[in-house]
Computed example of a mutant assay.
Amino acid sequence: MKIQGLSAIVTGGASGLGAATARALAEAGARVALLDLDGAAAQAEAVGGIGIACDVADAASAEAAIARAAEAHGPARILVNCAGIAPAARIVGRDGPASLEAFAKVIQVNLVGSFNLMRLVAAGAAGLDPLEGGERGVIVSTASIAAYEGQVGQAAYAASKAGIVGLTLPAARELAPLGIRVCAIAPGIFGTPMLLGLPQEVQDSLGAAVPFPARLGRPEEYADLVLAIVRNPMLNGETIRLDGALRMQAR
């Protein structure tokens, strides 16, 4: 799919992987709407596009955000789900069992939120005229290598990201007759604001664990893969690891 002139939506667009992806899509000629819980931050990042406040886990909020993006740019053909949270908690900690509400919130934001935007953008793209090759849209969600090798304290996060992996193929199969492709990216350790807030020696240690290149991933490298997925019509139903051959240990 040629990106120039298309309407795109990026969730979690105010920072990290989402901000880098929004910039890359804009530079490739897309009209980009950045959705984020922090609407002001999203607007500040929206160079040449628009920023919209959105709680991806809330149906009404997402529906309103999609409608506003469509009003500004037309119905989206590209969706990139980057919104997510990653609190750490043991199933049984020093104070007893983990909070069920906290576990459910991670699932709600990371997995349900991704599905929420997927269903809305797919519904809009389904009514558009097909492009060259019959394509109508592309959806890329963000999984994680934690989906495969979740560490101690990552039960909720790993479960939510494993859900993204499990969602990708059936969604691709279901949306295929509509000309909508669905993929996911499973990043390793990336230099997002959460990690860049750690002491430098900790960042260096994390980066050294990556076989090659022995460093933290760069958000721009995630964005490059998003663009490659959008442009390559044979990429469909796949979760692609982007981790420098890293395999996480238990701790």
Rank of each mutant, 00 (worst) to 15 (best):
K2L: 03
Q4P: 02
G12Q: 02
S15M: 07
L17Q: 06
L17P: 07
G18P: 00
G18H: 06
A20T: 07
A22H: 02
A28D: 01
A30R: 00
V32P: 09
V32I: 06
L34I: 07
D36Y: 01
L37A: 10
L37Q: 09
D38N: 14
A40F: 04
Q43C: 00
Q43N: 11
A46G: 03
G48P: 05
G48W: 04
G49D: 03
G49C: 06
G51I: 04
A60H: 07
A60V: 11
A62M: 10
A70V: 07
A70Q: 05
A70S: 12
E71G: 13
H73N: 13
H73K: 00
G74F: 01
A76C: 06
N81K: 11
G84H: 02
G84E: 02
P87S: 04
G93A: 02
P97V: 12
L100I: 14
E101S: 15
A102V: 04
F103C: 14
K105D: 15
K105N: 13
N110A: 10
L111N: 14
V112S: 02
F115Y: 15
R119Y: 01
L120H: 08
V121D: 08
A122C: 11
G127P: 08
L128V: 12
P130C: 01
E132V: 00
G134D: 11
E135L: 00
G137F: 05
G137R: 08
S141K: 10
A146C: 11
A146V: 11
A147H: 09
Y148L: 15
G150K: 02
G150L: 09
G150M: 10
A156R: 02
A159I: 12
S160H: 11
K161N: 05
A162G: 15
G166L: 12
G166S: 14
G166M: 15
T168V: 13
L169Y: 13
A171H: 11
A171Y: 12
A172C: 11
E174I: 03
E174Y: 09
A176K: 14
A186K: 08
G188C: 05
F190G: 05
F190Q: 05
G191W: 04
G191C: 03
P193R: 06
M194K: 06
L195Q: 05
L196Y: 06
G197P: 03
Q200K: 13
E201A: 03
E201V: 03
V202Q: 07
L206W: 00
A208C: 08
A209C: 03
V210C: 02
L216R: 01
L216H: 04
E220H: 07
E220F: 08
Y222F: 14
L225R: 03
V226W: 01
N232M: 14
N232K: 03
N232R: 09
P233V: 10
M234Y: 15
L235W: 06
N236S: 13
N236Q: 11
R241I: 15
D243T: 13
D243I: 13
A245L: 07
M248C: 06
Q249H: 11
Q249D: 14
A250I: 11
R251I: 08
